[in-house]
């Protein structure tokens, strides 16, 4: 490990430790914001692991997340919670592998559309399954898992995602993905199996999103398909990851924190204008900060270095 890496690790550990202290403040407001931030930190960072280097925009986060919730919702009375997390992870991985096999050999547009529809498709299937089974439209999740517990679990998952991302970036797989993002033809002729590299990363990010959904299920005591498979979630993840900068492991988090704080205000003060705000954010990212906040930081740093 280089000196810079040791320093980064130290900074990360301190930040995580500080973040872990939030529930001890006893403030319900900060804990609730903390859970939201931790959720989107995990989701956007894992999203960027796949989409950052490959430039495929995945809108499947909501689908995976919803599946995770439903696994817990359906199984909480029958199986112990950790087993459900495991089932969620396996299901998410399997679905991601299937979707990847079908779409990742093709152009990015197909992939966006497919993933956009996936959540809606699964939602329709879930609804259909529930009505033909004759059960009610939602599921009750009654556990004794408290909000601080959920928060710490999310932080733990976040730590795993960061370690995984760090490891991937140093590995052949990470280098392969960077080459794929630059020029897929060169990648293929250099001996890279581009399809499997992309599928592996998509599986990683899909699994993380599914587990996140499973972790958050106890927070809602009643799960409904329209909440679990919300398309809004997928879009928010994309926006925050791009706002921060999807090309760096530490990019998404610097998008998530400010965005969630502002978003919390927007949804409270202008609940009917959220879509409009979201649209403006998309345009801002594309036209004003195409490389995200991380890109701005790097540019500023490079300029500062040039000045001395």
């Amino acid at each position: 490990m280089t000196g810079a890496e040791v320093r980064n690790f130290a900074v990360a550990i301190v930040l995580f430790a500080l973040a872990a202290l939030i529930p001890l403040t006893g403030s319900g407001y900060w804990l609730s914001i903390g859970v939201s931030i931790a959720t989107y930190m995990v989701l956007s960072t894992s999203w960027a692991l796949f989409s950052g280097p490959t430039h495929y925009i995945s809108l499947a986060t909501g689908a995976f997340y919803g599946i995770g919730m439903y696994v817990v919702g359906l199984g909480i009375e029958i199986l112990p919670y950790p087993v459900l997390l495991l089932i969620a992870a396996v299901l998410g991985a399997a679905l991601a592998a299937l979707v990847g096999l079908a779409t990742l050999r093709l152009s990015g547009v197909y992939f966006v559309i497919f993933t956009l529809g996936l959540a809606e498709l699964i939602r329709q299937l879930v609804n259909w399954g529930q009505t033909t089974q004759g059960s009610s439209s939602g599921l009750y999740v009654l556990t004794d898992i408290s909000e601080p517990m959920i928060y710490w679990q999310l932080l733990g998952l976040g730590a795993i995602v960061y370690l995984l991302g760090w490891w991937i970036n140093r590995s052949r797989l990470g280098f392969a993905l960077r080459i794929i993002g630059n020029d897929e033809v060169v990648a293929v002729h250099s001996g890279i199996n581009t399809a499997s590299a992309k599928i592996i990363l998509f599986v990683v990010s899909g699994t993380v999103a599914t587990v996140t959904g499973a972790l958050l299920a106890p927070r809602l005591s009643y799960i409904e398909s329209s909440i679990a498979f919300s398309p809004m979630l997928s879009f928010l993840v994309v926006i925050m990851a791009l706002l921060g900068g999807a090309h760096r492991l530490w990019g998404p988090i610097i998008g998530v924190v400010p965005f969630m704080l502002v978003w919390d205000l927007v949804t409270a003060k202008f609940p009917n204008q959220t879509t409009l705000v979201l649209g403006i954010c998309f345009l801002l990212i594309v036209y004003a900060i195409p490389h995200g906040l991380a890109g701005l930081v790097e540019k500023y740093r490079a300029r500062a270095r040039g000045a001395f």
Binding site: R178, I179, N182, D183, V185, V186, H189
Partner: peptide, 13 residues
């Protein structure tokens, strides 16, 4: 191994 008729670089590297 091959080169390409129109040179192909990895521009961000």
């Amino acid at each position: 191994a091959r080169t390409f008729q129109l040179v192909r670089m990895l521009p961000s590297m």
